[in-house]
Simulated scan of single mutants.
Amino acid sequence: MNPRRLTPSMSVLIAFEASARHGSFTKAAEELALTQSAVSRQVQALEAQLEVALFSRVGRHIELTAAGALYHHELAAALARIRNATLQTIAHKAGDGPLHLAVLPTFGSKWLLPRMNDFYRRHPGVLVHMHSRIAPAEQDKDQMHAFISVGTGHWPGHVAHRLLSETLVVVASPGALPGYASLTPADISQQALLSVVSRPHAWADWFEQNGLQHRAMRMGPGFELTAHLIQAAVAGIGIGLVPRILVQDEIASGELVALFEPVDSGRGYYLTYATRYQQLPALQAFTQWLLSVEFPDS
């Protein structure tokens, strides 16, 4: 197939997208500062190039065909990415573009956000837009500049800065677990074990490290967010196995107690970003600040 047929001109694509969004050639023309007939001709040219009817026309009224609706869905997202890339490029030239950061939700709310005031004090001209992500999605590759994730540090094509090692600790509400100080690892099998869906094997690994049988586990409720698991543990619903850095406040306040010694998960918290973004001024400022932060004993 002729490649030109697969790459219509930007002018006809914009005319089609505006017409589809408004459901009107007239309103699309007003938005694009063109005449109604000019927009209509551009859409007709696109239909002729594709050899597909994109609109059904009844008098002055237009409606997307099934093919047109599918095309508009894909095209609108593509045009949005192009516009976003253009804005980022313009902002990069000006040196004041915002940073789009994807961050683990609980880490973001419990650790990073309370410290962001220090970042803004040091870099008052830089904006960081934070997006909660349990795991990066495919579309994030084009929309996010950087990620704070947990892993082993191996992300091909990315720069990875290790922030701290991850240790996991068993926590429980002292009020809901009398005699917690004398518990042994074997006693844990009598308790409801709280878990997060992103760590399906965490308890199994802990039991194995302590020489316990997996069949002895008594699994309790599961949660999507670690923050919700922590709240459930504070409420006495069960006991949790969580990153120590995320429960230090609750342990310090006495809402939770740590049972046994923390264990190394073999993973770490990392700031990562694609190499194509490493010259962004906002990312450079944020990276320099984050790497200067003194992380507590995890």
Rank of each mutant, 00 (worst) to 15 (best):
V169W: 08
P156T: 06
G151P: 00
T167K: 15
V159W: 09
S165Q: 09
G153E: 02
H154M: 10
Q139T: 13
V170C: 13
G153N: 00
S165T: 03
D142R: 15
L163E: 00
V150E: 07
H158E: 01
H154T: 06
G153S: 05
D142V: 12
G157E: 03
T152A: 15
T152W: 14
H145A: 01
H154V: 09
T167V: 08
G151A: 01
K141M: 14
P156Q: 07
K141R: 11
L164H: 12
S149K: 11
V170E: 04
H161P: 05
L164G: 09
V170I: 02
H145T: 06
L164D: 07
V171T: 07
A160D: 08
F147I: 04
H161C: 04
L163F: 03
K141T: 13
H145M: 06
G157V: 05
G153A: 08
H161E: 10
F147Y: 10
V150N: 05
V150I: 02
F147H: 07
D142M: 09
I148V: 05
Q143K: 09
R162Y: 00
F147C: 00
G153Y: 02
A146I: 01
T152F: 12
H145W: 05
E166M: 02
Q143Y: 15
G151Q: 05
S149C: 12
V171Y: 04
L163G: 00
H158S: 02
V171C: 10
F147G: 00
Q143M: 13
V171N: 04
V159T: 10
S165N: 09
T152R: 15
I148Y: 11
W155T: 12
R162W: 07
Q139Y: 14
D140I: 00
G151M: 02
H154P: 11
G157S: 08
I148D: 00
T152G: 15
L163I: 09
G153L: 03
L168Q: 14
P156R: 01
I148C: 04
L168M: 12
S165P: 06
H158V: 05
L164P: 15
L164E: 06
I148E: 07
M144K: 05
V170T: 10
T152N: 14
Q139D: 11
T167P: 15
E166D: 00
I148G: 05
V150M: 02
G157F: 06
L168E: 14
S165E: 07
G157H: 02
H158W: 14
E166V: 07
L164F: 08
H145N: 03
L163H: 01
V150C: 06
M144N: 04
R162S: 03
L163D: 00
A160L: 07
Q139E: 13
S149P: 10
D140N: 07
H145S: 01
V170W: 10
Q139F: 13
S149F: 12
P156M: 04
S149N: 13
V159A: 09
K141Q: 11
E166G: 04
H161W: 07
G153D: 00
